[in-house]
Design a protein around this nucleic acid. Sequence first.
RNA 1: GCCCGGAUGGCGGAAUUGGUAGACGCGUCAGACUCAAAAUCUGGUAUCAGCAAUGAUGUGCAGGUUCGAUUCCUGUUCCGGGCACCA
Length: 954
Amino acid sequence: MLFACIVNDSKKSRRVIMEYNFNEIEKKWQAKWIESKAYSVPNQSPRPKYYVLDMFPYPSGAGLHVGHPLGYIASDIFSRYKRLKGFNVLHPMGYDAFGLPAEQYAIEHGVHPAISTEQNISNFRKQLDNIGFCFDWEREVRTCDPKYYKWTQWIFMQLFSSFFNRQKQKAEPISELIASFEREGNAAHPFPNEKFKLTVNGQLSTANSFGADEWLSFDETYQQAILMEYRLAYCGYGEVNWCEALGTVLANDEVVNGVSERGGHPVVKKKLRQWYLRITEYADRLLKGLEQIEFSDAMKEMQTNWIGKSYGAEIDFAVKSEKGNMPSMRVYTTRPDTIFGVDFMVVAPELAWVKEVTSAAQHDEVEKYLDYVNSRSERERQAEKKITGCFTGAYAINPFDGREIPIWISEYVLAGYGTGAIMAVPCGDERDFKFARYFNIPITNIIGSFYNGEEANPTKDATLENSGFINGMLMRDAIEVVIARLEEMGIGKRKVNYKMRDAAFSRQRYWGEPFPVQWQQGVAHTLPETDLPLLLPEVESYSPGPEGEGPLANIPEWVARELETNTMPGYAGSSWYFLRYMDPHNENEFCNRSVSDYWNQVDLYVGGTEHAVGHLLYSRMWTKALHDLGHIGFDEPFKKLLNQGMIQGSSRFVYRINGTNTFVSKGLLDGNDEYNGQKTDKIHADVNFVDGYELDIESFRKWRNGEYANGKFILEEDKYLCGSEVEKMSKSKFNTVNPDDLVNRYGADTFRMYEMFLGPVEVSKPWDTKGIEGVHRFLKKLWRLFYDEMKGWMVTNDAPTPAELKVLHKTIKKIEDDTERFSFNTAVSAFMVCVNELSELKCRKAAILEPLVIMLTPYAPHISEELYVSLGNTSSVLDAAFPTFNAAHIAESTKEYPVSINGKVRTTMHISVDAGQEEAEQLALANEVVQRWLEGKPVKKFIFVKGRMINIVA
RNA sequence: GCCCGGAUGGCGGAAUUGGUAGACGCGUCAGACUCAAAAUCUGGUAUCAGCAAUGAUGUGCAGGUUCGAUUCCUGUUCCGGGCACCA
């Protein structure tokens, strides 16, 4: 084999090529890749499939900073690696393009969201292309594209037209439910919401079951209202998180600490007509599914906590009120074993029956308390957790010992969870304990010495005392006994509860998918499929419509057609996009079944942890529903999830003396950032003109239209040194580093490898540009290994020596292992070691270099292509096979000896020795130590490394 | 408050199953090349003592298990993340 000489005649370009001209190389190969459609992926292949997916970005106006590509680079490396391993790899990219920022921008600047989104996307694309990703761009999806959201609307219609069959634990067409109602009423399928009561003759009844005859007697409108109670996507009135500033409702996961996740605006509870997804029906399957998928433990725990499954019982207590006969009150508890320790009851203030049981004497106080609760915002409730409450004057009766238990109301009990009422056991529950202490309610001790009178003890291991028929029993055993007795008495039953609520699915905004829903006399009907997509209409203004409705309510034609004026939330499009990538141009189906059967689950999903309880739960639910309805063949979307850490910004500060234009170097300030007793302002300086900590004063003067042009600088050692802090990377903090600049300066390959070299992908860390030189030097060194400045390309066809083979095969093994376990930083190190060793050996043999170049391809694809061609290959390195390592070259011979320690034989010792030249030495050493053991001579210390003994100390 | 995760040189980090702690890179020091600088190359670089060979100490802190612990166990401090009245 010979190497192709691409050295040009002109001296200039000869120099350029000699010096690893990454700019030229990268442009050249990127153009070739496009021309040859190198990354186009077929939907059929004799090769096994592998699906690598990135969480697609929201195309914001700010563009990419160095934090964004971290996950993309990791997934790109893994995709290329899998390709080289012989897989047909699907690695697509697209845009999550519906959302609030584009709409806010439209409100402020009057630019149509479609236009600003389009601009942002083309900017993103340019930035992504610079880095040399192997995305199959023919499969690009955009959630705001009508060709895409046609199918988001279609899936919505599937959810609308199905219900969750609890007996079979799966979604089924609503027609099955109707057939069942016509046959036997709702006996087999009770209302998902247990609190739902039928309305008979215009009166709310106490019944929540109906027979076939009744069903048939209901008019169409009422039948539809009942069906709505079952649909997987349904419309109803409910308390929602309303954000006035954003003019829309938010899902629970979009509210953080009582304010909106986006923008931090206040959020209040409001009763509104809303669309929901009945995700609660999937709670159990979402929980069970976690067992078969590879998410990090932290991620699984977050989802588990969010679902919040708990096992317990509902117990009915008779109520004694001065008003006479009262229906019993129902509480939910996970600890029925503590029933003899109940000293008071607490009811959520919102419950209507509170007023009914309140005694005359307590009436005013209760009213006062209810007013107080109403005046407290969600945020206040969360911020200051005061102990508050009020006695109602009524009592509940303990069914086992007849004790009268005072009924209180307090805001610490939530109306929305369980029955909205609890039995309080102060000796066992911290909140109940504090409440009892605060209001001087006597505390019954049922756990003997486990309770110290100072704090509650939630143990299950105590032996019960003062507990009637369960006296002397272990608490954890008593749980079942009590439930059995309650069921026997017909006043209680086993009950599982979930913290998770149904997901709010509508937004009063413009820039989202319109619902394919038309209202007729208050009944929602989906549009015929042939009318899809229901296009988002043009509007004149993006401001909200009347009565908390969205901008679509301002369009007369829209309203006249009685079309739904809400739009879908951001997570609608992202809940299924991984399916569309498989079959992105299909105009007849959301995704052809045989295609989705081929690609199946996403094998590796890469993205941040911030979507733990939002996107990742929703897309899991959609997948399960689509699977139940027979549209796809798997019910978990993502087999393995890799969470990349955040890259933080390392901000730089300059210090200006108050009221002056004088800047003082950081080292001259005291601990309070004061200079000779004068206070200073701490001002962000753009990190791009700070070298380490040293400010480039000239650039700083020119910054911000010369705002600081006349600044004076008090220097230390002729330098102005900045202060620093790690903060979130953001434009406003002037700590963003643009990948484009780095790619221009060092090349995409250096940039890619450096991002990986920073540390484990999963870990968050501040960005530091300094180290990039080291990786760049490595690539230059690699280049020089092939290219001698004086003699040109220097690759021979000589046979490699054992030492060279050992370097190669050691590296293959290491890179393969590291890549498989996503340890990209150590893999990059291994490349560096390999090239150092080969340089030392002056190894320029094609037999060694060629596999090295192929191995390098996932990490640095451009230089790999260039070198591969220079090695005389006509095909692309992208089509090569990842080298396999030859164990023989790095194998060791092993001998087995019995080893005794302290006089007794403890184990057999595998003593391995290098196949290399030190063999005799190693063996001698091994023999010596074993001999000593056998002779009983003391050896102070012997040292093994991976089963190989390397030293003894006599 | 509860639940996870982490703590290793001046810095980022490595040590995959309990086996020479500090790979690799940055920074830094010295040297080579150069009139000089840059670039490049070579060597040193955990700490303390010593000219050196070498010795002692060393993975947040205190203990434990083990022939041997960054790794396992118990306690503790600090940092990061998640959840937060879910009965």
